[in-house]
């Protein structure tokens, strides 16, 4: 019996907890993609760099706060700097819309033109970010590292397997839940939120009803920018911040948005968790887990790992291809992609 409990703790510690935190970060990123797709009707490839930019601003402000000796005690100082990152990133999104996307909206460009434009924007932002903060790996988390340490857990339960929960993992979950609840409240209950949904659903009819397209677009960018900054910061806090990683993060983010159905916010959240759990569960070596469950003294010969962690992005890619082949509108039937 104790072996079974140990196996469950093992899986929780190495799979469920990290995948949940990662899922929250992906879900927030995918929400940005799906909102832009729903309202502006293109796939925004600059989303990854927008997250990176938000994290960068937050880090710079965190350093400033740390130099002043301001902190949050057990919580990371970055949490205090996060609102600044959200604001600046939202502002940046409004500026890029005014400088770049608005022109193509006025000329009624095809969605594919928007997509290519967003790729261009992605490269410009990528260069700008590396110019400002440099390409190096940054660890900017401070405060208490663990909410629950392996040693505390073992002492408390007397099990041989330990369970650790990092502060940043808990933070990812709490912040994501709060933001998602706020976002859905905004979309479902407020006048502006409803006009956003109406515009996303049927642009012509929304215009007939007197909805101002420029206002809807501006509000969308504000939300997307703020969410991207949070997603980037949480990812950076949980792992570390490195500008290059955000390019490869695009794949799981798009996979998440497409799994749930582009344009569908609820789908983006579910998609984020589907992708995160698939990535983590399929790259974990189950040797020790099976040893606990098998007969006494037995252990598998190999690692019992489906895929090497080097291939984790292949999983996103595989999910993406399968969804596009089987149900291109996604599980929650968004707009066709």
């Amino acid at each position: 019996m104790e072996d079974v409990v140990n196996a469950v703790v093992l899986v929780t510690n190495f799979l469920v907890v990290p995948a949940t935190a990662y899922g929250c970060q992906l879900a927030l990123g995918a929400l940005g993609v799906t909102l832009v797709y729903g309202v502006l009707r293109f796939s925004n490839f600059a989303q990854g760099e927008t997250m990176s930019f938000g994290a960068m601003v937050t880090i710079l402000f965190t350093w400033l706060l740390q130099s002043w000796g301001v902190g949050l005690g057990p919580l990371p100082t970055a949490l205090l700097a996060l609102p600044v990152g959200m604001g600046v990133t939202a502002g940046l999104c409004l500026l890029t819309d005014r400088w770049v996307f608005r022109f193509y909206r006025r000329t009624k460009a095809q969605p594919v033109i928007f997509l290519v434009v967003s790729v261009g924007l992605m490269f410009v932002m990528n260069g700008f970010i590396r110019f400002v903060i440099g390409p190096a790996d940054r660890v900017f988390t401070d405060g208490t590292r663990f909410l629950l340490t392996v040693r505390e857990f073992k002492a408390f339960t007397g099990l041989s397997e330990g369970l650790a929960i990092k502060t940043t993992q808990t933070l990812s979950l709490v912040v994501a839940v709060v933001l998602v609840v706020l976002l859905f409240w905004f979309l479902e209950k407020t006048r502006t939120g409803k006009s956003m949904r109406a515009y996303s659903d049927n642009e012509d009819l929304a215009l007939l009803s007197g909805v101002s397209p420029e206002k809807v677009v501006a509000v969308t960018w504000l939300i997307v920018g703020a969410l991207a900054a949070v997603a980037g910061t949480l990812y950076g806090l949980d792992k570390s911040y490195k500008p290059f990683t955000f390019l490869s993060l695009l794949l799981p983010i798009f996979a998440a948005a497409i799994v749930g159905g582009l344009g569908n916010p609820l789908g983006a959240i579910v998609g984020g968790f589907v992708v995160a759990f698939s990535e983590v569960f399929l790259t974990y070596p189950y040797r020790k887990f099976l040893a606990y469950l098998g007969p006494e003294g037995w252990r598998p010969d190999g690692l019992v790992q489906f895929l090497s962690t080097d291939y984790k992005f292949a999983i996103s890619f595989f999910i993406l291809v399968v969804v596009l082949l089987v149900k291109p509108t996604g599980v929650f039937s968004g707009k066709s992609s």
Binding site: R191, K194, D201, N202, A206, S209, G210, V211
Partner: peptide
């Protein structure tokens, strides 16, 4: 054609009619 907001409820459709 396309004269309702399909994803929105009947009541929300009517509310959108009174948007201005």
């Amino acid at each position: 054609t396309d004269n309702v907001f399909r994803s929105m409820t009947v009541q929300e459709n009517l509310e959108m009619g009174a948007f201005v």
